[in-house]
Write a protein that binds this DNA or RNA. Structure first.
Lengths: 244, 244
DNA sequence: TTAATAGTGTCTTTCAGACAGTATATT
DNA sequence: AATATACTGTCTGAAAGACACTATTAA
């Protein structure tokens, strides 16, 4: 990969290397609203953007992290104590000015998880970690670095992909009803879906299996389902129609 | 982004940084076949993978490259002399073992271009640059690093996206007929599409405009079209149906 | 006039939207 | 029995597949 005029060994040894970080956008649903996780940066006077809210993340540690994805999983474990059921790379942002410490590239992953699994773990330095509603962007705090732009892209990608994939299943506990699942979709998309078409779509692809338990308590019991192959993503042949 | 126990300044200064590279997957169509561009790595004895075929790319140069994307554009200019009409980030691959020189992260972009615009520019060191047909994977040379895997992902992404976007327009010269465009789609997808449905789809979204010229020469003249907003990508509401 | 390519029309199929109707539990 | 929620059926509509048909040029 070095240009032919460079000696590779020299280039690898001497070329100035950008900073290399990983950030994670964590989505969940609480109280029928899509939320994402932000953490407060420490206040130390050597810190850039002290006290600002930011995506959970940090430097790749070449000694501990086998790969970018492993690094994302570590950051996530440190903040939420959870091994993500689904982790997708959103993209990379790298340029000379996004971080005052120098040319830096961040590698962003996103994940979805049921909120009741999560116990937020404040970092050793009394960092806060908090859920913020995705809508109500006006009321977000100012974000560190270019994280606002990154979050916007993540939300865009999530919404686009929910139109034709099984992504919202990862917002739910292992067993759920079709109504739960539909509410998951509707919460992410921010619009109602038609019940009959929704159920036909979900059951026409063989990715759910009924568990032999029903959800009871509220009037007529409902069939509980679970995902056949957790970790995989299912693609539907069309997007939901946009409403008129 | 550093862990709270670390001083940011110290971390930025002392943490060992991964190598940071950019690679580009360049697609084109020649003789009704999808091709991609590979370059031969130099033979110098300090070079890893000497003489192997690889994606065009190389180290990010923090002094010259304003961003990852700018770096991709530079690599491309050096190899093909072309400013890409479309450039999309495919993803990043970073781990401890993919490059013998150390922990490295590569940032991969892909692009499509009409092949007649391109004059391959061998590097100063008599590197070769060559087009390879995407099918006939068996007859590819062994690729350097993890580039085979990356190429496979790029092809997958391209084919998936062609099902519901206007991507193949970037394989064509600025003015083209609907038949040309259909052939572009068919070449990428490797299967025939139905003419009537294809034309209806293309014209139902307002992204093409007729130029007041016809393609003549071969029997009945055909209307030439151009893309209304070059650089943009159009999304169609459905994928083409998979054939039975 | 024929060959070859450009372009249209018609019928079927697939699947989502709309919405009404039936089913089964709790109270 | 009333009610709330679970689930199904039927009709419509949008866009793709299949394929036949018409249109316009060069030779």
């Amino acid at each position: 990969m070095p240009r032919s005029s460079e000696s590779a060994a020299r280039a690898a040894a001497t070329i100035q290397r950008p900073l290399c970080t990983v950030d994670v956008v964590v989505f969940t649903v609480r109280e029928d609203q899509l939320h994402l996780l932000l953490v407060r940066r420490p206040e130390g006077r050597d810190e850039p953007q002290p006290g600002r809210w930011a995506l959970p993340g940090g430097f790749v540690d070449v000694a501990r992290d086998a790969s970018l994805e492993a690094c994302a999983e570590r950051k996530l474990r440190e903040k939420t104590g959870v091994v993500p059921p689904y982790l997708e790379q959103l993209g990379s942002w790298g340029d000379a000015t996004r971080d005052p410490r120098g040319w830096s590239a961040t590698h962003v992953y996103f994940t979805l998880m049921p909120s009741d699994e999560i116990e937020l773990q404040p970092g050793g330095n009394a960092e806060e970690a908090r859920w913020w509603p995705v809508d109500a962007e006006k009321r977000w705090p100012p974000l560190a670095f270019d994280h606002r732009r990154i979050v916007q892209q993540a939300v865009e990608r999530l919404r686009a992909k929910v139109e034709y994939t099984s992504l919202p299943a990862y917002l739910l506990p292992p067993a759920f009803t079709l109504t739960d699942l539909q509410r998951g979709y509707e919460t992410v998309l921010g619009r109602p879906l038609e019940k009959s078409a929704f159920r036909t779509r979900m059951l026409s692809v063989d990715w759910l299996e009924p568990v032999d338990r029903m959800r009871t308590g509220n009037f007529r019991p409902a069939q509980l389902y679970r995902v056949r192959r957790p970790g995989e993503l299912v693609f539907f042949p069309r997007t939901f129609y946009a409403p008129k």
